[in-house]
Structure formats: structure tokens, C-alpha cells
């Protein structure tokens, strides 16, 4: 399987070193095209006026927030079931990036909500679920950092990630239920009956560009994590040899 070709960290480092500059470039290009379309080809929405342009950030950010968690969950399975050496590196690298995009989704959702609903925060199903997702990301990061030895923490965090993955659809279901009980006065749905193509295309391009950006960030962060672990083991060896030298002297 292709994934296992990169099980060797050195091969991963070589491959990623070659691929990364292209990824950055492609991401920048696609995002540039997307931004142009977002501002110059997409018309004003008949309901929301220009604030629909916030959607071109908000929706890709929310999509990436979920994609990142799916990536972490998949990596966690790789850690627990197949003991793939880079699986927990992937999970650890993805968490802060996922958290950042979740934060961005919340903030842009809030900035979109104020002119639309008249309030900075709305306890609707989407925002509430994303808020809980944000808390779950923070929990993952906090648990990672609580362990000195990344190796030991890896499998425990993998368990948390998978429990969280099971919890996410339950949360979505629960919050939807809760929301139908407490239906707000004005319910806004941006993805009404249809999305007009002039809005859909910029959205898709921005989503693609954001995804490329995420992948580039993820691979770069994975490289850093591999380096960090090498550094750790080298420092440990250095400390051991220093102690051994001192013991002899």
C-alpha cells in the first residue's frame, strides 16, 4: 500500500521536501484565483448583500475543521491498529492546524451572523457543534502536551481521538434535536433550495485552495515533528554519553 512506502521517516522527509514547495505554490495560485472570483465574479446575494463574501472563508474553514478531525481519526486508527510509525506524527501535526481553522470558522461565522441575525453569537446547531469540535481539538492538544514522552502519549491520544470521532455524530444529532426544541425566531439557511452557480464556483475554488493550503501546512508540520523527535533522541543520547563519560572520569 502506498501509505506504507512512507512508513520510513527518512523517505517521508525526502519525499515531502520535494513536494512541499509545489504544494505551497499551487495553494497560493488557487487561493488567488478563488479570491478574485469571490470579490469580482460573485454577485451580491439577493438576501444577504455583500456579506455572502464571508461565506467564501467561513464554509471552507468549517469544511477543513471537519476534514482535519477525520484525518486525525484516521491517523489514530493507523496508530492503534497498524502501528504505522508516522501515524501519530500525522495526528499531532494536524491538531493545531485543525483547531486554527475551527477557530476561523467560528469567528467568521460570528462576523457573518452579526449583520445577518443581529447577534455576535447564535446557539444554532452549526455554531454550537463547531464550538464543541473546537473544545475537542483543544482537549487533544492539551492531552498531547501533558505527556513528556511523545511515544507513550501517542496511543492514549489516539484513543481520545477515536472516542471523540464516535462522539461527533452523536453531538451533531443531539444539538440538532436540541435546536429544534428551541427554534430561534429567525432561522437562516444559507444553503437554501439551491446555490446559484455564480456563488458555487468561487466557493469550490476557495475550498480547493484552502484544502491545498491545509495539506501543505500539515506536511510541513509533520516534518517539524519528525525533526523534533530526532532531536529528542539525539539529545537523550548526548546526555547518556555525557553521563557515561563523567562516570568514567
Amino acid at each position: 500500500m502506498g501509505v506504507f512506502d512512507f512508513a520510513n521517516p527518512t523517505r517521508f522527509m525526502n519525499f515531502s521536501a520535494r513536494v512541499l514547495p509545489w504544494l505551497w505554490g499551487l495553494a497560493a495560485l488557487v487561493l488567488a484565483v478563488g479570491l478574485y472570483m469571490a470579490f469580482f465574479t460573485a454577485p451580491q446575494d439577493y438576501q444577504q448583500g455583500n456579506t455572502v463574501r464571508i461565506m467564501f472563508i467561513h464554509v471552507p474553514a468549517a469544511w477543513l475543521a471537519m476534514f482535519a478531525y477525520a484525518l486525525i481519526a484516521t491517523s489514530s486508527i493507523g496508530t492503534l491498529v497498524w502501528r504505522h510509525p508516522l501515524a501519530d506524527v500525522s495526528a499531532r501535526a494536524a491538531a493545531p492546524i485543525g483547531a486554527a481553522f475551527t477557530f476561523l470558522a467560528l469567528v467568521t461565522g460570528s462576523l457573518w451572523g452579526k449583520p445577518m441575525w443581529g447577534t455576535w453569537w447564535e446557539w444554532d446547531a452549526r455554531l454550537t457543534s463547531v464550538l464543541i469540535l473546537f473544545l475537542m481539538y483543544l482537549g487533544l492538544i492539551a492531552l498531547w502536551r501533558a505527556f513528556d514522552d511523545p511515544g507513550r502519549g501517542a496511543r492514549i491520544v489516539a484513543v481520545l481521538a477515536l472516542v471523540g470521532a464516535v462522539n461527533l455524530p452523536i453531538i451533531k444529532f443531539s444539538v440538532d434535536w436540541w435546536n429544534t426544541l428551541h427554534q430561534p425566531a429567525s432561522v437562516f439557511r444559507f444553503d437554501g433550495p439551491t446555490i446559484h452557480p455564480t456563488i458555487l464556483w468561487p466557493l469550490l475554488v476557495m475550498a480547493l485552495g484552502a484544502t491545498l493550503l491545509f495539506v501543505a501546512l500539515h506536511i510541513a508540520a509533520m516534518r517539524n515533528e519528525v525533526l523534533r523527535r530526532r532531536l529528542r533522541s539525539m539529545q537523550a543520547r548526548a546526555a547518556r554519553s555525557t553521563i557515561a563519560a563523567r562516570a568514567v572520569a
Binding site: 455583500n50 456579506t51 463574501r53 464571508i54 472563508i57 467561513h58 474553514a61 493545531p96 492546524i97 486554527a100 481553522f101 477557530f103 476561523l104 469567528v107 467568521t108 462576523l111 457573518w112 452579526k114 449583520p115 493550503l213 501546512l217 510541513a220 508540520a221 516534518r223 517539524n224 525533526l227 523534533r228
Partner: peptide
Amino acid sequence: FIAAAYAIAVMVIAGLIVWVRLDG
């Protein structure tokens, strides 16, 4: 609102890129 949303997006993404670069 639109300006703020895009400004924050730029800051968050720039922050991520800077973090990854500096850490490396």
C-alpha cells in the same frame, strides 16, 4: 464585517505559516 473576516483569516493563516516555518 467583511473586512474583519478577511483580515482575521489572513492573520490566522499567516500565523500558521509563520509557526510552521519558525518551528522548522
